[in-house]
Design a protein around this nucleic acid. Structure first.
Lengths: 210, 210
DNA sequence: ATCTTTTTGTTATAAAAATAACAATATTGA
DNA sequence: TCAATATTGTTATTTTTATAACAAAAAGAT
């Protein structure tokens, strides 16, 4: 299949989670595009267009079969084989992410954490165990980890990214406020809390009231 | 001034932080567009265009005066009066954000935290004190808090957002995985870690190698 | 049975964002 | 002094994303 637009991938992830919650809460088996849209504060057209992208079709006028749709989304955005993930930096943020991550994501598994602090090594949150940085290469290889979530302090970020890339990781989700530089075969996603907050501040002040 | 594109606002926030770090590290006073671009993994045109948006001009061929540029960015994205922010939910994530927030942001102040857990009430991280939810209305009014960072557990998110809006908050940065619904005069920014991670997973698998 | 309504799927259009192209100008060096 | 070069500022173009418009089909109403 052709590669999907970035924004569509983001929304598909959200559709899936929203649909799972919706089933759990209301027990319905079908949903209209405008209903799903309302749950996400977007438009029904947007939903239908995204669903068109992944090639799922329902019977007209009956809404989408939720179970099927969840499955099709999974076939598209999940990889066939499970992907293993590690958290690097096991402070408050690393632990928070581990907690957020709990839940049934059959194709995406948080399998290890790393920290330089000997006091943290050996600790566990949600069955995710913390190893020393020295053992990173070994543990990454052993568990076939391909994505790292980087939550170390600012001063350690660049060096840690370098080490991670040496271990053979393929993607980094960067929570630090440092601008990382990675080879072009590594997928880098920046996740910048301060920028998000400054953006909220700007639009709270400047946005036309509506 | 005309309202800026969303992406430009995001980058301006990043330019400012990057420039501050750059000055601290290298002590230079000027920077070329392509140098700033390289630090952020974007193009020089992008930088120049954003700088054009905010109306700053340098002398051609000499690069930008860093100190001036930082100041102009501040004039644009900061509000003239300081904006006060609260963290709602003082678990691992709330505390992590408080730590990230430390640093000199003269116009954006994290002034309070709230939590329902009596054990957390009264605790402090980085001089940010935690109050009980019951005192929210009072503390928000007293400190003129206009933005809330929502980091409570999933099941509490919707109700907490409702209460926050009643207290008169104007913007919410939502870290929970719940789809919130807010009146149109409230600026809502979603910050979804799981979606970001699923996106990395998708592009690690599907992106053309480059 | 036929008309009306509702909802999907798709094509067409618009808006936002990024990139390219290039004129203008300062600097360097012959 | 004058040509070559480097860099900014801006307009033009392309790409990406979102919205609008609407045909097709199912369901219900008359």
């Amino acid at each position: 299949m052709k590669i999907l637009p970035e924004k569509t991938v983001e929304r598909l992830s959200q559709y899936r989670r929203t649909l799972n919650n919706y089933v759990a809460e209301y027990g319905k088996s079908r949903i209209y595009s405008h209903e799903l849209a309302a749950l996400l504060n977007i438009t029904a057209v947007q939903v239908r267009r995204d669903i068109m992208f992944i090639g799922y079709t329902s019977v007209q006028r009956k809404g989408y079969n939720i179970k099927d749709l969840i499955q099709v989304i999974g076939n598209i955005i999940d990889s066939p084989d499970s992907i293993n993930v590690a958290v690097v930096g096991y402070g408050n943020l690393g632990k928070a992410i581990t907690t957020y991550f709990a839940g049934n994501r059959p194709k995406l598994k948080l399998v290890a954490a790393f920290d330089i602090d000997p006091k943290k090594v050996g600790s566990e949150v949600n069955n995710v165990k913390c190893y020393s940085i020295e053992r990173m290469r070994e543990i990454v290889a052993l568990n076939d980890i391909s994505i790292a979530i980087l939550t170390v302090p600012t001063h350690a970020a660049a060096e840690m990214a370098k080490v991670l890339i040496q271990t053979g990781i393929k993607g980094i989700l960067n929570f630090t406020t440092v601008n990382l530089h990675v080879p072009s075969n590594i997928y880098l996603e920046e996740y910048d809390m301060i920028t998000s907050l400054e953006k909220v501040a700007y639009f709270v002040k400047h946005r036309p009231l509506g």
